[in-house]
Amino acid sequence: MSTETHTPTEDGEPMSEAELEARIAELEEKIAGLETELGDDRKKMTIVATKGSLDMAYPPLILASTAAAFGWEVIVFHTFWGLDILHEEKSKKLKLSALGNPNMPMPNALAALPGMDSMATRMMQKRIDDNGTATIEELIDVSLESGVELQACQMTVELMEYDEDDFYEGVTTGVGAATALQHMAESDVQLLI
């Protein structure tokens, strides 16, 4: 057998048979490790939910519950106002802002008046009801039922002075940025909403 087919070592010398065997064993081990890593071929998605207005509460939950229906592993990390989505009481009273919202059919000077946010919220809520759109509570329920992990960022839970008991049953607490990053690094899809 010609030595030309042997992989040269760094110094350019051809590898001995023993060295080659060792190298093969090393690579086989590496492949086995990679195969184990790839063994779980489920897609994974991590969403960071930072907003707590009525309109911004929907996208994370719609995507999360749909991804779970695809069989994906899904984590939604809720932080800052995003915590209100997990807050059992507050989640039922999320509001829409009329001010600074260019899609609202009113000038900002009017939108800044007292009661305008409530009016905008009522309009949106009516559309949600008329359209058969699920409520936030329903989406939370189906998400948890289908295995979505809803996480409440510990630092902001304390910052907002929320109590763990304020959240829906099944919400994961006691997690921080490191946990979120770890999930993001392992995910096929990462979204900040």
């Binding site: 779970a68 229906a69 695809f70 058969g132 759109t133 189906v142 289908s146």
Partner: peptide, 30 residues
């Protein structure tokens, strides 16, 4: 009467309760 994402989420749940070879009919207005 139900809109996105409910038809998908409910379809997935219903499929989970079926056996291989079963066929699910999903009736939607969305």
């Amino acid at each position: 009467g139900q809109s996105c994402p409910m038809p998908i989420v409910k379809t997935k749940q219903a499929i989970d309760d079926l056996e291989a070879g079963d066929v699910l009919e999903v009736v939607a207005t969305d």
